[in-house]
Write a protein that binds this DNA or RNA. Sequence first.
RNA 1: GCUGGUGUGGCGGAAUUGGCAGACGCCCGGGACUUAAAAUCCCGUGAGGGCAACCUCGUACCGGUUCGACCCCGGUCACCAGCACCA
Length: 803
Amino acid sequence: MKTYDFKSIEKKWQDKWDEEKTFAAKQDFSLPKYYCLVEFPYPSGNGLHVGHLRTYTGLDVVARKRRLEGYNVLYPMGWDAFGLPTENYAIKNKIHPRAVTERNIALFKRQLKSIGFSFDWGREVDTTDPDYYKWTQWIFLRLFEKGLAYKKEMAVNWCTSCKCVLANEEVISGGCERCGSEVVRRVKSQWMLKITAYAQRLIDDLDEVDYIERVKFQQKNWIGRSTGAEVDFHTTAGGDIRVYTTRPDTLFGATYMVISPEHALIDTWADRLTNLDEIKAYQEESARKSDFERTELSKEKTGVELKGVRAVNPVNGNEIPIFISDYVLVSYGTGAIMAVPGHDTRDWEFAKKFGLPIIEVVQGGDIEREAFTDCETGVMANSGFLNDLSVEDAKVKITGWLTETGKGESKVNFKLRDWVFSRQRYWGEPIPIVICPHCGFVPVPESELPLKLPEVESYEPTDNGESPLAKLDDWVNVKCPCCGADAKRETDTMPQWAGSSWYFLRYCDPDNGGAVASREALEYWTEVDWYNGGMEHTTLHLLYSRFWHKFLYDIGVVPTKEPYAKRTSQGMILGENGEKMSKSRGNVVNPDDIVDENGADTVRLYEMFIGDFEKAVLWNSASIRGCRRFLDRTWALQELGFSNQKGIRPEMEGDIHRTIKKVSQDIESLKGNTAIAALMTLLNMFYDSGSVTKEELRIFLLLLNPFAPHVTEEMWQTLNFGSGISGQRWPSWDEEKCREDTVEIVAQINGKVRAKLTVPADIAEADAVAMAKEEPKIAEMLRGKTVLKELYVKGRLVNIVVK
RNA sequence: GCUGGUGUGGCGGAAUUGGCAGACGCCCGGGACUUAAAAUCCCGUGAGGGCAACCUCGUACCGGUUCGACCCCGGUCACCAGCACCA
C-alpha cells in the first residue's frame, strides 16, 4: 500500500479555501448562527506551539461540523499583539515593535494556514491597529465617564524585572505572572478600574452560563464573597474603630483588637501613644517587607501594642488592648479586626505569644490546645444574651442587636480588588486622558481618537517608574481640551488585557468605523456560543472580559449580559519527558516540523486522539504514526474495491448508524479520542468485510471531514461524490437502526462470569435464565447446589446466586 | 493549611455511571512479502499457572455495602491544579 501525497493535496485545498473564501461567515442574518471562538494568540517570535493547535483544532472540528449541520458559522482569528515580549525584543534588537509585530503575525498566519483551520480570514483583528484600539480607548472613556476608571495613589505590585505595575491577578505566589521575578510593594498613582462594582453580578450570572465547573469555582473563589457584619468599637481616645467580621456571634469572645500597620487612625492618635517609637519602627519594618514575606504563613505572628489607647467591647463594655500587626491587611474589610482567640487560629497564635486572654464562646472544643474554629454547629457560652443559642441563631440575634443599637450592621465583603490598569511601558494603548492643573483629569475628545502611540527612538523602561512616553515632551505637552490651559498627557499605557477584553465583539463587524460593531451584527452574532481557552486565563482575561461586557451591556452597547454562553478549557500539552515544553528544557515540538513530516491532517487527528481534551497530556512522537496509518488506510479504501450493493449493506447498517451517533455526540463533548477510535473501528470493519459501498464511504468521509478536512475533500472529489464535501450535510442516525437484534450476554454464578451466550435483544427474563441454565458449564456448576436468587439485567447478564 | 481534581497493562487512554475491565492506538514479540531493509499485511500481547479446554489474581492502599464495585460509603497514601494571614 502506498501512502498518499499529503503535501500536494493539503496545499491544493488550502489554496482553494482561501481563494473561494469557503469558510467566510455569511452576511445573511436570517440563517441560524453559531459563533465558535478560541482565544486569539499573542504572536510571539517563537511561532505557534502544539498547545495552540490543540485548542484551535478542537473548535475547528466543532465549527466544521456546525457548517455541515447548516449553521452560519463565525470562527474568527486575530492577534493580541500588544505586550512586553515584543517590546523587550524590539529594545534588544533595535527594531520598532510595530515591525516585530508584523513579522510575528506573518509567521503565525502562515503556520495557522498550514494546518487547514477554517478561520474566516476576512475578519482578522489586531489589537495594535489604531483602527482597533480606537475602540479600546473609547470603552475606557466610557468607563471614566461613569466613574469606573479612576486614578489613585496606593501601594501596588511592582515587578522588579518588567519595571511595571501588575494587577493582583498577575501576581502568582508573590512573583510576576509573566517573568516570575520578585514583586514588591510600591506606592504609585495608578489608573484603576472598578471591577469590584460588578463583584456580585460576576458571581450571580455564573449560574446562567454553561462553563465547566472548575472555571466557575475558581472565579467564585477569586471574587471571594463573604457575609458578616461591621461593628464599631469605641476607644478611650474618643473615636471609633470599625471592624469587619464573619463571626459577629463570637463578639463576647473578642479580648483584643488588631489594626493593620497602615491604618489611618494611628497617626490621629500620635499624641496619646506612649510607645510611638516602637510603633513607628514596626510600621517601617512592615513597609519594607515584600508581599511574599508578609504573607508567608509559616512565620510567627508579630505585633506591637498601641499603649495609651484602649477599645471598648460594645457588647459587654470591657476595655481591651489594641495592637498593630501585619497579619491584618489594610486592603480588606476595614483594615481592622476584633480578635477572638478562642475561635480563630491566627488570633489564637497571637494571643498565646502576647499572653492575652482566650475565652470560649462556643462549646465543644479545647481552646487550651488550639482554636476551636470548626464550630458552625455549636452552642454559645459565656456570651450574655446569646448563651445557649446555636451559632446560626446567635448570628441573627447579634446582627439584629447591632442594627438596633446603632453599633453595627450586616455587611458583605469581597476579596476581589479593583483592577490596576496602568502600565509604565511603551507597547500598549495610550490612556486617552489629559491632566490639567485646573480641570483635573480630562478625557481626550472622541473626535481625536484613536490617540496614537507616538513614534519614539527608545522604548527602554525607566527605573523611576515612569512610562517611556514621559520623555516625549512634544507629545506630553498639550492644551487642555476643556479650558485650553497648558496641560500634560497621561503617559502610562493600558495592560495587555485591555484589547482582549472586547475583541470577540469586533469580529462581528471588524471594519466598522463608527462603533465597536453595529447593533445589528451584535444582535445576530452574540453571545459567543462556544468559547475555548486556557485555565490560566480564568481569573485574568475571562474575568476581565466578563466585567467589560457587563459594563457595555449597562450602557446599551451590547445586547447580552454575558459574553460567552459556554466555556471549555483544553489541557496542556507537555513534552515527552512529562515536563512543560520550553526552550530551556529542549523539549519543544515545532508544529512546522511535524506537519512537514506527517501532514496537517495527521497532526490534527493526533492532537484530538492524544487523550481527554480537558486533561494535560504528554506529547509522544511515536504515537503519531497510528494516526498516519489510519489516514493511509482511509486513502487506500479507494483500492479496496467497491461492493456492487447500493446504499448501506444490511449487515453494516447497525455499525454505521452507531458510528454516526457516537461521532456526533463525542464531538459535542470534545471527545475526539473516542470519536476517532469509533472511526478506526468502522474502517477496520470495512477491511474485515473485504469491501465497502459508496454510500458507506460517503458517510465515513463526512464523519472524518472535521478532523481531517484535506484528505476527505480530495477523496470526495476523486470519487465524484458531487460538489465539495464542505457544502454537504452532516449524516443523521436512526435510533431504530442503532439497536441490535441479538446481543451477547454473560452468564454468571455468584457474580463471576462463567459462560457467554447469544440471545435475541428482546428476550424475556425467564427465557434468558432458562437459556443460561442450559449452558453445559453452568449446568455443571449448578449440580448439587441450592439456587438462592436469579437475576437478569436486560441485554447484559444473567446472574445465578447459589449456595 | 484550605478547596477542587486525578490515580486503570510496558505507554496514551476506553468502559453506556453499579453489570464481560483494558475499546482504539502506540510500543514490543512472531510470521508473510523482499537479495536486504523500510513501508505494508497477518497473528499474538494485563500477571501467574496448565499440553489444553480452563483456573486464579488484577483498576494506588486498607476496610465496608451489594447477587455483583474502576464506579457507592469510611479511612490511608501519592500526584496535579487553584487560593493562600481575606478576619
